[in-house]
């Protein structure tokens, strides 16, 4: 790359305005290496909208911007248009493109969920990538329904978010789609395998990727991967997939690292440790992780 400049169409080009150490961009890079430019990326408003600011874009393939609530509806239009072109013989099946929705958690868990649910009802053939940075990262990190309990955000300042993170995996699985998986860029092999698996299927497919966010979560950008690995090792971000009506964990952390080690690295949880550790709340958060793994039987 340093000799010739980026030219490969299976890579996202550099030069994007996303924050240094972005865990979402990291996942998108890994996804794009598998899917490449034979895609139409339908992007709802969020951090990733800033990828394509006229006249610059990192995508080698197509990109379409939609409002926050409508990415799945936009994807329906793109898919229909491609199907009509195919049916009329205007493009060959070799020229067909995959429809990929790209949104953050604000859209995936909240504003866009209604349109997404409707697309699932219709069995729309699309792949949905959600980069979940657990808040409205693009506007100063206000809480979303993906924000974990007790996390400090711009709109939960005093003692952190009082709600609990919504289970989007279960919501998708309840629609009985073709595929649902959680992943994280800090586990690149697991992520790549899931992207390949999803790409080979038809129908609605979700890749729900936890995106450690140095800016919104308050940690040094060099720690993005470390934070991601700890999310898996502590068991707070279970890696799993749903296929053929069954959910299976792809990595079970049997010797789980104490959750506090994950929380301690992040400024958004600093109030749980300073001025002195809030043992009661830390124990509650740890218990929620224990309760989750208790019901995992494989």
């Amino acid at each position: 790359m340093s000799e010739s400049g980026p030219s490969s169409h299976s890579h996202l080009a550099p030069g994007t305005p996303l924050c240094a150490g972005c865990g979402g961009l990291q996942a998108l890079q890994q996804l794009y290496r598998v899917l490449g430019d034979k895609t139409v990326v339908v992007n709802a408003a969020g951090c990733m909208t800033l990828l394509s600011i006229y006249p610059f874009t990192p995508f080698a393939g197509s990109w379409l911007y939609t409002a926050m609530a409508c990415a799945a509806a936009g994807a329906q239009g793109v898919r229909d248009a491609l199907d009509i072109q195919l049916a009329k013989g205007r493009i060959s099946s070799a020229e067909d493109l995959a429809t990929v929705v790209l949104t953050g958690d604000g859209s995936a868990y909240g504003m866009g969920l209604s349109a997404t649910s409707a697309a699932l009802d219709r069995g729309l053939d699309f792949l949905y990538l959600c980069y979940d940075n657990e808040g409205y990262g693009n506007t100063g990190h206000q809480y979303s329904s993906a924000t974990p309990r007790a996390a400090h955000t711009a709109t939960s300042r005093v003692s952190g978010y009082a709600g609990s993170k919504k289970d989007l995996f279960a919501i998708w699985a309840a629609h009985r789609p073709s595929y649902v998986a959680t992943a994280i860029a800090a586990e690149p092999q697991d992520l790549a395998r899931k992207v390949k698996k999803a790409a080979a299927l038809r129908g609605p497919r979700l890749l729900l990727v936890l995106a450690p966010c140095p800016t919104g979560w308050g940690f040094d950008p060099a720690l993005t991967v470390k934070v991601g690995q700890l999310a898996v090792e502590t068991g707070i971000w279970p890696l799993k997939e749903y296929v053929d009506g069954r959910a299976v964990h792809t990595k079970i952390p049997r010797q789980r690292t104490p959750l506090a080690e994950y929380l301690r690295l992040q400024g958004r949880f600093a109030h749980l440790f300073s001025p002195q550790p809030d043992e009661q709340r830390l124990a509650e958060l740890q218990q929620a992780v224990e309760d989750y793994w208790q019901q995992v039987t494989e």
């Binding site: 400049g5 980026p6 169409h9 890579h11 996202l12 080009a13 550099p14 030069g15 994007t16 305005p17 430019d37 990828l51 006229y54 006249p55 610059f56 874009t57 990192p58 995508f59 080698a60 393939g61």
Partner: peptide, 13 residues
């Protein structure tokens, strides 16, 4: 319409 791909490489971050 910008039809050129991957133009963000022009931005030296």
């Amino acid at each position: 319409t910008i039809t050129m791909a991957a133009t963000s490489a022009l931005v030296k971050t």
